[in-house]
Each structure stands twice: as structure tokens, then as C-alpha cells.
């Protein structure tokens, strides 16, 4: 999958599937400096993946403020051959001052054994056989 550079940062797109519905979301930041993976609530609403009564809730303290997120497991998240089922994601506001819809964090990158090739600006799975 191609990596696109906007505002000096690496972005890609992912396919999210949940309960038989799917949505392709562009403008996803590839961020090995974020432990978790988070998506904009309005994108997840397209596949009816919304906060429910007894979900785990978190508050994230960063340098510029605090952020509220809700934890959920999504049926499937994929980026070409990088694919995970029943993967924990966060639902949030994803408002970091420029256009983006989510973050692929370290938990996704490490579990898919992602290879980020900045010479070719591509991201792919480094698993044997891929």
C-alpha cells in the first residue's frame, strides 16, 4: 500500500469491517509513536461501530490537553495484506489540528509485522509468504 505524505507526515488508507458492513477510510496517520490505534467517531458511525453503555473508557493526557476515547474491538481492519481480526481500537475525536481520520498505532504495526519502506513510500507485511 502506498504511503502519502501530507504536512510532512505519513498517511495511508484502511478498510474497516464490522458486523457485515465496511468502510474505506483515507487520511490515516502511520504513527509508531502512538501505542494505540484510534479512529474518528464519524467514520466508525458509517459501520455502526459506536460507543455503547458499558464500554471501557479512557482519558489520554498529552502535552496540549486531554482526550476522551472509548475502547472497542472491531471485527476486521486491513490495509492490503496487513490484516487483523477482532482488533482493539479507540473511538475518539481525532482532532489534532490538520485533516486526518485516524492513527494506525504501534499495536497494529507490530501485530501485522508491518514494514514501512520510506525509500519506496510503501507499507506492507513482512510476514513470511507475503
Amino acid at each position: 500500500m502506498k504511503i502519502c505524505v501530507h504536512d510532512g507526515l505519513p498517511f495511508t488508507k484502511v478498510l474497516l469491517k464490522h458486523r457485515g458492513r465496511s468502510v474505506e477510510v483515507d487520511r490515516i496517520l502511520i504513527d509508531s509513536g502512538s501505542a494505540g490505534t484510534v479512529f474518528d467517531v464519524d467514520e466508525l458511525a458509517k459501520i455502526d461501530l459506536l460507543p455503547e453503555l458499558n464500554d471501557v473508557i479512557c482519558t489520554v493526557f498529552g502535552i496540549g490537553g486531554t482526550e476522551f476515547v472509548v475502547e472497542k474491538n472491531i471485527d476486521q481492519i486491513s490495509l492490503m495484506s496487513l490484516e487483523l481480526k477482532n482488533f482493539p481500537i479507540e473511538i475518539g475525536s481525532v482532532d489534532y489540528g490538520f485533516e486526518m481520520k485516524g492513527i494506525l498505532g504501534f499495536n497494529f504495526l507490530v501485530r501485522t509485522k508491518a514494514v514501512i519502506d520510506l525509500g519506496q513510500l510503501r507499507i506492507y507485511s513482512g510476514k513470511a509468504g507475503d
Partner: peptide
């Protein structure tokens, strides 16, 4: 929050990186 929520338990995390930028 939904007010039928059983318990008001909130996990706390600290993060730097882009998620700290405003």
C-alpha cells in the same frame, strides 16, 4: 457517558507524540 453505566471506571494514559499537539 450513559447514565445506566454500571461503574464509572476510567482508565488513564499518558501520551506524547502527535496526540499532544494542538
Amino acid at each position: 457517558l450513559h447514565t445506566d453505566r454500571r461503574e464509572l471506571s476510567v482508565e488513564e494514559r499518558r501520551w506524547v507524540g502527535i496526540r499532544g499537539i494542538r
